[in-house]
Design a protein around this nucleic acid. Structure first.
Lengths: 199, 199
DNA sequence: CAGCGAGGTTAGCGGTCGTTAACCTGATGG
DNA sequence: CCATCAGGTTAACGACCGCTAACCTCGCTG
């Protein structure tokens, strides 16, 4: 993991706050003035960093999908060939959980505001998402050969729903600690796949 | 199940179309003129049936939460006492799946547009949701006594995420049929709880 | 030290949207 | 047969919002 020590750029600040606000109140529910205020500048100042409000959402969504896919490909490559399929699946699950726990606003945006994108951006995001899903499907079918492809795809989407439920888990107060939560989610995901494979 | 034979009232038409549009493009992304057009009347004509756009969303969300809770209570009462706890859980799961498969737009709205409500409405919806969750938590802990209450609550939220993933499953074309999908979701939910209980 | 570009500011334009006002119409019932 | 009312219509208002224009102010750098 590459740990950053330098301060975040203004651009990164903006993206982070925009993600939080979009997740809280929806893309159309947030004004540019609010995003500006959240980083200490006022509305139109944002246009020195982004060509428009849409561009912020686009960059966020493309970034998320890209990160997820890249991470999954890396994990797949690291396990290259010799490892048990089940370990690869565990690695994918772990990666997705890390993401879901560390970037809850992004997880929220990811399946909520996709339709607010320009056509070209939306197509790009969907393509990245599809690749990510297909990658999971192959790994899952490797572990549970009894699953048909449509069933595996449904199962993968459902497990994403399970893992992406993190924003609904109490606001960090009532949670039994990050490690325990991650472990619980991991077990449940495996259990769900297991049960799907027994059809 | 009470089957309706009479035609839907205009009011019901409006709610149904509004739900669909809100789910597709978000509450703020849909104009009253579009909602009107969807039922064959024009924008302001809606105000003969609802005091405002907010009221439609409110009625939808309160209705959903209420239906879910009522259905769950009924199922719990029907199983009263003598049945195995595991059968009660199966009944809850079945009810939730029916809802998730039959009313996808509502499921989408349910966890997406809650923050767009007036304070009083939002409190009401949250209270209904909380009761629904607590009802599940008790049943789950009855079946898996090893689960702590916080873990059970997390597990319930996660399974909701799993079951509510139906809008992401292909648009009825690629799906292996409703029965098969319901069965798959049911198995996965049970598998997830099972795995959670083994912690 | 002049000049310039990066990164702000405020004022304001143009469009959209929720809502209201005023008006119309056809069915209903005394 | 007329009054009423439910359920529409169009016009328009006021607020808000994304974005642009015009201007300002530093910190560099030749």
């Amino acid at each position: 993991m590459v740990t950053r020590t330098d301060a975040p750029t203004r651009r990164e600040q903006i993206l982070k706050e925009a993600a939080r606000l979009f997740a809280e109140r929806g893309f159309h529910g947030v004004g540019v003035d609010e995003i500006g205020a959240a980083v200490g500048i006022s509305g139109p100042g944002l246009y020195r960093h982004f060509p428009g409000k849409d561009a912020m959402l686009a960059e966020l969504l493309v970034g998320i999908s890209g990160q997820l896919l890249t991470g999954a490909k890396r994990r797949l490559a690291e396990a290259d060939g010799d490892t048990r399929p089940s370990a690869v699946l565990d690695s994918l699950i772990e990666g997705h959980i890390d993401f879901a726990l560390d970037d809850r606003p992004l997880i929220t945006l990811h399946d909520r505001e996709l339709d607010r994108l320009r056509d070209s951006d939306r197509k790009l995001v969907r393509q990245l998402q599809r690749q990510y899903v297909e990658l999971w499907v192959e790994v899952v079918r490797d572990v549970y050969p009894g699953l048909s492809e449509p069933s595996a795809r449904s199962a993968v989407h459902s497990v994403f729903g399970l893992l992406n439920s993190t924003p609904h888990l109490g606001r960090a107060g009532t949670l039994p600690g990050r490690g325990a939560t991650a472990a619980l989610l991991h077990r449940m995901a495996r259990g769900a796949f297991e049960a799907a494979g027994e059809g």
